[in-house]
Nucleic acid binder design. Sequence first.
RNA 1: GGGCCCGUGGUCUAGCCGGUUAUGACAUCGCCUUUACACGGCGGGGGUCAUGAGUUCGAAUCUCAUCGGGCCCA
Length: 863
Amino acid sequence: MTVPKEYVSHEIEPKWKKAWDMSMYHFDWNETTRPQYIIDTPPPYPTGNFHIGNSLNWCYIDFVARYKRMCGYNVMFPQGWDCHGLPTEVKVEEIHGITKNEVPREEFRQMCRELTRGNIEKMRETMLNLGFSTDWSNEFVTMEPAYYSKTQRSFRKMYDMGRVYQAEHPVNWCPRCETAIAFAEVEYEARGTMLNFLNFDKLKIATTRPELLAACVAVAINPEDDRYNEYVGINMKVPLFGHEVPVIGDREVDPAFGTGVVMICTFGDKQDVRWWMEHDLPLRKSIDRNGLMTSIAGKYEGMAIPECKDAIIEDLRAEGYLLEQKTLDQNVGMCWRCDTPIEILSERQWFAKIDTDAVSKAADEVMWLPPYMKVRLNNWIGTMEWDWCISRQRLFATPIPVWYCKDCDEVLVAKEEWMPIDPTRQQPPEACGCGCTEFEAEEDVLDTWMDSSITALHVSGWLSDHDMKLPTQLRPQGHDIIRTWAFYTILRSMALTGKRPWDSILINGMVLGEDGHKMSKSLGNVISPEEVIKDYSADSFRQWAAIGGSPGSDVMFRWKDVVSASRFFTKAWSIYRFAMSHLEDYEHTDMEVSELKVVDRWLLSNLNRLILSVTDSMDAYQFDEVFKAIRGFTWDVLADNYIELIKSRLYGDDETAKKAAKYTLFVTMDSLARLLAPFAPFFSEEMFSRIGERSVHLQAWPVSREELIDPDIEKSGDFIKEVASNVRRYKSEKGMALNTSLEKIEIYGTTMDTSDLAGVTNSPIEMIEGEPDFEHVPVNVKPNMGKIGPLFRGKAKAIIDALLDENPKKIADGISKGKIVITVDGEPVELEPDYVEVEKEVVSAGRSVDVLDVCGVPVVIVR
RNA sequence: GGGCCCGUGGUCUAGCCGGUUAUGACAUCGCCUUUACACGGCGGGGGUCAUGAGUUCGAAUCUCAUCGGGCCCA
């Protein structure tokens, strides 16, 4: 059993990647004993690049999945791919040098599928390189019939429940993408614009959108505004266009904005929609689906919006309607895909009903980590005004399974047993109720969120041969998609099953570049996980993910964290190599505590305490705390102290004492391999391969042996460690080599097993009862604020002052007598001995020695 | 304009249901090849805990205000 001197991650990681049988990570659908732990993994968009933000999130998921498996859960860590969407359409157009309307619909969709398959392949490779314990037997691809038929069936089910309906309603519209979009897809950007003051017949109005004059349907004022309320009810002529519109009163009008008079258009913004619905105003569509002016715009018909705006302002000015222009800061709603300002158009679209109460109630049943992230969902819920527009005018998406009868216009929604189906390619197998067999296919497709909002249902066996396992146990996702993915998933799960989708939701932060800004191509601060693996290792990357920050907070990527991670593995390897060199002929059997030395019991006490705290932190998803604790134990306790202390035993002749050290080393190596397994799957596997049978990833998580946690032993061990460390420092300060043999080390007033100490200091140790012939001179008094404060409250300060004024020697005498008496404001006050601590200085009395004070115990070094 | 999070040595951070001397990492300086490791060991320097006020015997910690940063939304 030779252990190579160096840990070469570039050989070991590929070795295990190749050797692992990934079926060990498969979920057992027929399990009856182990509890289920299903993860509703986010399906990434297959861009072909599994980026660092994905990687951070997946590291968190993998830590949990591996930990839960080791704890005896039947874990499903599935992998999905959210394929549909505009970016792929754009990419396909770019690659093939076409526009989507130049080729037949199906051919274009085929090109999109091919591109997507290749991209998925690339991303899978990165995921394997990062060592994720993905359950590939439960992979899903939303563009494949097996998945999108579920999307279509969910559409039909919700249609039957009356939760999906078609209607003409205002929608957010992207003129560039030529499609309706949902509020969740609208992003706001601060832009400067002109506020135009117009002479509007009898009143002056202020508007930022003069190009919508043709769509003006009313003028509104605040009914409490004395300047104008007499005008309510009369009609006014719209400048340039001449049609008459009524003046209405509405409290929402801000008298302080502009002139206090606004025009209502169909539609300039969301507020217009509210007024339009509330006051039952007519509809005037002045903008078409391409963002061009319609016929009601008269001579401006066919102009693009900015062009029309310029022309109308010119004409208003020429005809004397334009009174004034002021600059105004304004937030403009933009399409999140293409940054084009959106318009609100009235369109015949499909909608899903939003039941905010049901979503809110279900969200309360879910444990949010960190908890304040739920606030974001609730804030979003509070702003919902319209239902969710689920139809899109695109190609690469799940087809809406609907036809319209050519004779009677009746809507025919496909039956579930017909799915998957593309209505543009297949006719319904039944005639319309009116007897007609000629149908017009619905060409619109579904919003991609309609696919991805049923992942929780899909992975838990919905509409499959398996038993339904909803709710899943964990939803891991970023805080940027709470208003979309989290919201829609809860909505759909409640609508379709009446159950919450998950027990808990773990929110990860965004990854920031080394400059502290969000990683983006334009800032040039993008780092790919593959780069990190190449320069360091996958395990080092994973350690950065664990230790870089706590879940929920944004995490900065720093190369130096990766460097220190890889140094930790070097150190751990060195420890492992040392341990294994002494365990060559070791056969593991249980040992009684009585057979162990103090130092062994000290280490085991610390190890079991570590297991306890690490388990708690894992349960709380505090991976940074977990790894810091493991690192601290390994480096400080095990390497810097324990190993140094036992060397003399390991190299000595006392076989019993040697065996105790070997036993302790073995147990520690075995536990460490298991504790590291969720974080460093490759390194821990390499470690474990020389310790135990089969993969470390099939082993149980260590259980703390609490009977080995012993505060007294820890105290004794700490003392030995402190003596060793003080002697080391002493030698260092005196310029002595570390292995210099001192004539004698005397320790006073305590008894203990000194064999390891003699070994590590390479010097004889003598325990001497009583005090040394030196004087302990009390020099300083330290009041114990934690005790004095609460007891004496307002008097505390006076007591502390009195204590500090008093001669330290007198206080020390008081302590030895069991009672301290001091005078405060002329009154005697009694204090218990533990209310103060006295610092003492040891004064030498004639011997040529050095005296160290270790935890209050005099240690005398005879040179 | 509203909501949420956050300001701790040069950098990043722990502590934050109040208690003495504020944690660790990286960086920096000095010393050391001791049979696991120089990708190591030992030791040192460096912080008025953003600012101001309040509560309290006592505040990095609680309250308020101000300034600054980030995110989500209108």
